[in-house]
């Protein structure tokens, strides 16, 4: 039982690491090792993370895996790309609602070295509108003996939505116990996409969001203060930001307050606060 739980924690930890939350990931790997000291994957990821410098370490890409149904995307250089997790409006991907999450690998029932791209599963809904290179007119699938819908999960042999939801919920609860509200919110957003109406997810998400928001606001201090960019434009381009963080940074002109930036960003208050807190932590902006 504890081994299974440890595996779940490892998966949740990997997911967080892919999202850029290395601290949260590390905590989960540690917790997995506490529950199952013999868990090789937890040790491997923990050591991998520690050897490469923890938070500042480059992401270790898992060994190539057999991924059915889609190409394994090349793991993007997510390390330090901390604006990437900001969920909100904007971004080129918004236009066609496609996202290309980095893969997380789940052990496949039946052993062997086969792994399944867990994020492909988690992002199943998002992948749906992805343009198909080869498409068949509706109804034609029958001709080829493939059911028109609902067959995907079966085909790839991955767990059903329920177990994924439980996995995410448990991961989130663990993270909340560890006071990692940021990681918990990320997992809960994912959980909410899987089960939009689930009251447990909603309650937990609201609670962790409120807590996270309070923590971020406390980090930012008085929201009426005016942040300023510390770096010269020539130095800014060497930062590793995504377009959302770039947008927020572009709005900081020495005249707008934090509160104004929440209104200007076009993103949720939480996403904006996360970006601002990170910009502050990294010394990109300053106040006063």
């Amino acid at each position: 039982m504890s081994s299974e739980r440890a595996n779940q924690l490892v998966e949740a930890g990997l997911w967080l690491r892919m999202s850029g939350d290395h601290v949260g990931a590390q905590r989960l790997f540690e917790r997995a090792l506490e529950l199952d000291p013999g868990n090789a994957r937890a040790r491997q990821y923990l050591e991998g993370g520690a050897a490469s410098g923890g938070n500042g370490a480059p992401f270790v890409v898992p060994p190539p895996a057999q991924v059915l149904g889609r190409m394994t995307p090349v793991a993007p250089a997510l390390e330090g790309d901390w604006g990437a997790w900001a969920e909100g409006k904007g971004g080129l991907e918004e236009a066609d609602s496609r996202k290309t999450p980095a893969p997380v690998y789940l052990p496949v029932e039946g052993g062997n070295n086969g792994r399944v791209d867990a994020l492909a599963l988690l992002a199943r809904e998002e992948d749906a509108p992805e343009p198909e290179v080869f498409s068949f007119p509706e109804g034609d699938t029958q001709e080829f003996g493939v059911p028109s819908s609902g067959g995907d999960t079966q085909e790839y042999g991955v767990p059903t939505g329920d177990s994924e939801l439980d996995l995410l919920l448990r991961g989130a609860e663990d993270l909340l116990e560890l006071d990692d509200h940021s990681g918990a919110v990320d997992l809960l957003f994912k959980a909410q996409e899987l089960a939009p109406g689930d009251a447990r997810v909603e309650a937990l998400r609201q609670r962790s969001e409120q807590m996270l928001m309070a923590m971020l606001e406390s980090k930012l201090g008085d929201l009426g203060r005016i942040p300023r960019v510390r770096l010269q434009p020539d130095d800014i381009i060497w930062l590793n930001l995504d377009h959302r963080a770039g947008f927020v940074l572009a709005q900081i002109d020495g005249a707008v307050t934090y509160e104004d930036l929440f209104a200007l960003s076009g993103m949720t208050r939480l996403d904006t606060a996360r970006i601002l807190a990170q910009l502050l932590d990294e010394g990109v902006i300053t106040v006063g």
Binding site: P76, E93, D96, R98, A102, H243, F247, A250
Partner: peptide
Amino acid sequence: LPFICTPPGG
């Protein structure tokens, strides 16, 4: 305009 967009493939 630095970081104007992230390419669709990441």
